[in-house]
Amino acid sequence: MAEAEGESLESWLNKATNPSNRQEDWEYIIGFCDQINKELEGPQIAVRLLAHKIQSPQEWEAVQALTVLEACMKNCGRRFHNEVGKFRFLNELIKVVSPKYLGDRVSEKVKTKIIELLYSWTVALPEESKIKDAYHMLKRQGIVQTDPSVPADRTLIPSPPARPKNP
């Protein structure tokens, strides 16, 4: 296991989104999630760092940052959801997909992934009303035309506890 002593949120995220990674590196992604949970201001700092990476002009860096964001939403609980559910962060995602901001310079892959994530959170986190507001604004602007079909495991809905596998 990697030596975690002295690692900061920033250093974990730099490793998790390093453009020279050949594939997503889950050791670093989970290291970042764990560090968020350890720090008092973890979620606030993490969303700021993530927004910066998601706006990277390098597609692979941005895609990895979105994977990290998705992992944090699954592993860092309500404290993290609350930060993502603020316009301060949501606006940073909106900037990436909107042609009025960065949208024209960003790959379709990154934009599609952002829209899928936003939609999955509107389904899984109905109490985070600002996520819905942001998503519906993108629809009104025509940036989102139809709701994406998000696989069930991409949403945050926990699996039913007593799923009968062998009825």
Partner: peptide, 15 residues
């Protein structure tokens, strides 16, 4: 109080 003022300052991006 801090949280309340943060809430007031949190606006959707103008489009």
């Amino acid at each position: 109080l801090g949280e309340e003022s943060e809430e007031r300052d949190d606006h959707l991006l103008p489009m």
